[in-house]
Design a protein around this nucleic acid. Structure first.
Lengths: 248, 248
DNA sequence: TAATTTTTTGCAGGTATTTGCTGATTAGTT
DNA sequence: AACTAATCAGCAAATACCTGCAAAAAATTA
């Protein structure tokens, strides 16, 4: 069998069945495993498939992460890298959705091994690209506006979790009202997440500091850590530090 | 044997078998390998065939260049539009993931009001764009290779649903083994989906007909409707019709 | 027809590809 | 941490390829 013939066969097999094992292929084509591996590597270099340990995956499964414009991207990246430091190997992490959380997902160190719980489709999509992270998706009705799961079922699932840390993408925060939001269903979910976690971290770009929305998620005293893109000694953060929050 | 004659013989041979080995040709025509090679190079320069190491391939064989992100997209669109006809207002629909299901999601009529249950991140993302569809995401662990939720929790959720219709993106199907797949966890989920639905629909591009994978999802007799891009009177579909499956 | 030119073919050699193997290394799992 | 399987790097045999060349064949011309 010719090399190109073999490679077309492999591609066809992958496109039909989404994944292949090297060992299966070398049974079917009757060629050494090295040859298959070399073929898979070549096809992967050409971008025709995704090579994984022991076989390959179809490319159409690998969603190209959307690089569409994110507001205040740099600030969010700064926040994300600070937040990474709080996550340690083996932790159970609860996260909401939102663009800051997406940046966090992208910034997670590749060698981190942890279990992430989320109800956000976007966040889950990002976590998938991390080799060592286990993702537990919290199911229930998907809210179209926020693209996260909401509803009683989701909340009772969350309540069953005992997470080490809860990382909240925050809509608005101020001294008087704490964390606030504008979607009743989302608020219910966030409340449950906060209740289920030993430690609560709020990710907030400084623009959202000292602003408030209609619905309260929690008071400031529930928040253990507040992360902004500012330096901790920034004047803006002082009132929060004074309430006893750990500011990074 | 004249040069012209020889070259048209080679072309005939290629059109017949889609490939040809230099060594075979020089046995058949009884000329030196160099001559054959020169012929193949000339024909390749004329664009009549594709020269590869050790022989040549038919021009039609060379599918790899179409960097279409989705394999057999047109066929899948055809399938999707047929499948849409089965979904009616108010229905509870269970779907798997996969590229064909994504096409279905895109093809759903804008005025359709229905509730979709799925464990596929991609599918959910598509459903979100539909104004009148309610999405219930089935939560649990997300399998990175297949990007759907898997696990006991997901399965027990699925079992609680009584869906009107289950639409399966199918990996492989043949008369003997029915629907088969290559990922144990995915198979468990699909099995549960089938059990929870009044009606089971399999979406399959014709290339996957009469192929099998390692793990059985269900026998043919569980399938109510089989949808391919072919016309129902196609010869390939006859054996399936004979088993009593409704073929669209 | 004979001579000349052009094209085609086969061959020798040197080079490049492909493939399977060995042994060391790494990744994934328990 | 230990074990297994997959991967990688490098090697060697086999095969395919290319270049240039000269003989053979075909085409052209005288």
């Amino acid at each position: 069998m010719l090399k190109q013939e073999r490679q077309s066969f492999i591609l066809r097999e992958i496109n039909l069945h989404n994944k292949v094992l090297s060992s299966d292929l070398c049974d079917q084509i009757e060629v050494s495993e090295d040859t298959i591996r070399r073929d898979l590597n070549e096809l992967a270099d050409d971008g025709k498939l995704i090579k994984v340990h022991g076989g390959a995956l179809s490319k159409s499964y690998h969603i190209s992460s959307n690089s569409n414009h994110v507001y205040s991207l740099d600030e969010k990246k700064t926040i994300a890298s600070k937040a990474c430091r709080l996550i340690e190997d083996g932790m159970f992490v609860l996260t909401t959705g939102g663009t800051t959380i997406i940046e966090l997902a992208k910034a997670l160190p590749i060698e981190l091994r942890a279990t992430f719980f989320t109800g956000s489709l976007q966040a889950a999509r990002e976590y998938i690209h991390h080799p060592n992270i286990e993702i537990i998706f919290i199911g229930d009705r998907i809210s179209k506006s926020s693209q996260i799961t909401v509803g009683g079922e989701a909340i009772s699932r969350i309540k069953q979790i005992k997470a080490d840390i809860c990382i909240l993408g925050t809509n608005a925060v101020d001294i008087e009202h704490g964390i606030t939001d504008n979607d009743w269903e989302v608020v219910q979910v966030k409340k449950a997440m906060i209740e289920s976690s030993k430690k609560v971290v709020s990710l907030t770009i400084s623009e959202k500091l000292n602003s408030a929305q209609r619905l309260q998620v929690c008071c400031l005293d529930k928040i253990d850590v507040l992360i902004t893109e500012l330096l901790p000694n920034d004047e803006l953060l002082k009132p929060y530090i004074d309430t006893g929050i750990n500011v990074l």
